[in-house]
Computed example of a mutant assay.
Amino acid sequence: MIKKMIKLVLVGVLALGITATVNISAEAATHKVMWGKTELKAGQIGKVTILADTDLVKIGSNGSLSKVRTLKKGDEYRVYTYKGSNGGLYGLGASSFVQKSTKLKYETPSKSKLALLNKEVHGGITPKAGMKLTYSPSFTEPTKREFITKVENEFGANRTLLTIPGQEIGGYVYNEFTSDEGDSTITFGVNYTDWGLFNVQYPLIEGKQTKEIDYDGNDRIIYNINVISTTSTVTVKAGTFQNVVIFKTNAGYTYYLAPGVGIIKMIGSDGILDAELISFK
């Protein structure tokens, strides 16, 4: 666990001459919470994925079902209600239903997805285990660097290591833990050192402030920082990511973190692109 956090000096990035081209305010204007192919909305209880062509139906005055149209394989639809009649009917809105059957899969939203409806993030923005992440530039270097992720649990903290293939030391580490004061925190820094890029508290709520913790020697310093977005759709060289968390630290660095992937982009206080995810698998 990182015991103290100091500002990380990014060496050589200025010489790279790469400037950020993304308009943060434009990204933050995207407030959709995507769940697969559909947007999760208030009042929604689940969704159905059509596994084979099936009928969309309406209920007649005598309780009989009449076909409206055919729902195609691969499509997804929001579910707002459920009726136990006719073997089970999922309500898709506008008084239309689809019958429960093996031709479709019904799912309910996760707690993290529901929290996003309130634009809150309580976790889930670190990489999953066994991923290969390639960055260029790569935080402290203006060059391409590949990392392999490894997840550990140590003293109640979830540690996600970004290891460098063929090297026993080096790389970076995310820590998610609950402090003695009961605060839930996420940190990111250089592994095997006390250099930290950020140390911020959950929950991250769009348009509100959260606490960033820093240290000057043994003195603990707390800053209030802005959470720009928790629901943005952001495109980098590695692809397009939904529900991206964007926050700006007291030192002026802006971080973009995607669920299950972690940092996809980092912009310095001078507008220079300090890190970008260019591929992942």
Rank of each mutant, 00 (worst) to 15 (best):
Gly63Tyr: 09
Leu56Val: 04
Asp194Leu: 10
Phe177Ala: 11
Gly36Trp: 01
Gly84Met: 06
Ser64Lys: 04
Ala29Leu: 09
Val236Tyr: 04
Val57Trp: 02
Phe139Ile: 02
Asn250Gly: 06
Glu107Tyr: 05
Leu16Pro: 01
Gly170Gln: 15
Asn175Ser: 08
Asn191Met: 12
Lys281Asp: 10
Ile169Ala: 13
Ile125Ser: 03
Ile24Asn: 10
Ala251Ile: 12
Lys105Asp: 02
Gly217Val: 04
Ser95Glu: 11
Lys113Gly: 07
Leu116Gly: 02
Thr81Lys: 13
Lys83His: 08
Gly182Asp: 06
Asn250Ser: 10
Lys119Gln: 15
Leu117Pro: 04
Leu14Gly: 15
Ala29Ser: 15
Arg78Glu: 13
Val121Cys: 03
Leu51Gly: 12
Gly268Ser: 04
Asp219Ile: 15
Thr81Trp: 12
Gly12Trp: 11
Val244Gly: 02
Leu16Met: 09
Gly123Phe: 10
Gln209His: 09
Gly166Asp: 15
Thr108Trp: 06
Tyr80Pro: 05
Ala157Glu: 05
Asn158Cys: 11
Leu277Ser: 01
Glu154Pro: 01
Thr19Pro: 12
Ile246Trp: 04
Lys111Gln: 15
Ser66Pro: 05
Leu40Asn: 03
Leu40Asp: 00
Glu176Ile: 04
Asn226Pro: 05
Tyr90Phe: 14
Thr163Asn: 06
Val227Leu: 07
Leu197Phe: 08
Ile59Pro: 01
Val13Pro: 01
Gly124Asn: 12
Phe241Glu: 02
Met131Ala: 01
Gly271Leu: 09
Ala115Asp: 14
Arg159Asn: 09
Asp216Pro: 04
Val11Asp: 15
Gly268His: 01
Thr54Leu: 09
Ser232Leu: 04
Val11Pro: 11
Ile264Pro: 00
Arg78Leu: 09
Lys58Glu: 11
Val68Ala: 07
Asp194His: 14
Gly166Tyr: 10
Glu154Cys: 11
Val57Phe: 07
Leu104His: 03
Ala275Cys: 07
Gln209Trp: 11
Glu168Lys: 13
Asp183Thr: 15
Tyr223Lys: 07
Val234Gln: 03
Glu27Asn: 10
Ser232His: 04
Gly74Asp: 08
Lys73His: 15
Leu197Met: 14
Gly217Asn: 03
Glu181Phe: 09
Gly271Gln: 13
Ile6Phe: 12
Asp53Phe: 08
Arg69Ile: 03
Val151Ile: 08
Thr233Phe: 09
Thr54Tyr: 03
His122Gly: 08
Ile228Val: 10
Glu146Thr: 11
Lys237Cys: 00
Asn23Phe: 06
Val121Ser: 01
Thr254Asn: 02
Glu212Gly: 04
Leu10Gly: 01
Phe198Ile: 06
Gly46Asp: 00
Phe155Thr: 15
Tyr253Phe: 13
Ile278Cys: 00
Leu114Gly: 07
